[in-house]
Every structure is written in C-alpha cells, then in structure tokens.
C-alpha cells in the first residue's frame, strides 16, 4: 500500500477551498494514504465490464412541458447573504 503523491494546493484550488499551510500538509499525508489504499482496485481485471452510474437505472424520466408553481421569488432570496432590488449581490466580475 504505497502512498500516492498528490498536489493538494492545486486540487484545492480546483475545488475552490482555501487551506492553511498546516491543512495542506496534513491533507497531503492523509490523502496519500487513502489513495494508496485505493490502488488495490488496480488488481482487478475490468476488461469488458460496463460502468454502473446508478444501481437502479431509469432513463428518460420526463414530465409534461407545462408551467407549474415554483419557489416564490421572495422565498428564493430569503437566505441570501447579500441582496438588493430582488437580486443577489456578488463582487464585481467584469471591470
């Protein structure tokens, strides 16, 4: 069960999670160990095996295309950390 090296800083950036240097060090060691354990899946021959995405596959679950009530505007905004004029406020995106 060899530990696997993982660039935690880069992956954390992809996941949009800021980490302290301590967290980075600890996570690198822990994830290395977990990925080392996961390596055992390479023992198996999976040639010709179809992947399972859902155990009970349902396909093309659709409904009639008609207007139904949805979450009222005020309810959707009720938990917003910052809002004004019926909109969410976010930091400036375009200069």
């Amino acid at each position: 069960m060899a530990a696997v090296e993982i660039d935690v800083k880069y992956v954390a950036h992809l996941a949009r999670i800021s980490l302290t240097p301590d967290e980075e060090t600890k996570l690198a060691a822990q994830l290395g160990g977990i990925l080392g354990y996961i390596e055992k899946l390479k023992e198996l021959d999976i040639t010709g095996v179809e992947p399972t995405a859902h155990a009970v596959p349902l396909v093309n679950v659709t409904r009639a295309d008609e207007i139904r009530p949805s979450l009222p505007h005020d309810d959707a905004l009720r938990n917003a950390p910052a809002q004004a004029g019926g909109l969410f406020i976010v930091p400036k995106i375009v200069e």
Binding site: R16, I17, S18, N79, A80, F88, V90, P91, K92, I93
Partner: peptide, 16 residues
C-alpha cells in the same frame, strides 16, 4: 445564494 459568506474582492476568492 445562501448560507455563510466570507467577503472578498473577487468571486473566486469569495468562493475559496
């Protein structure tokens, strides 16, 4: 849209 927010000057930094 909901929950905790730590403010930052750009959206990516806000998310992180």
């Amino acid at each position: 849209r909901y929950g905790l927010r730590v403010d930052a000057s750009d959206p990516t930094e806000l998310y992180s």
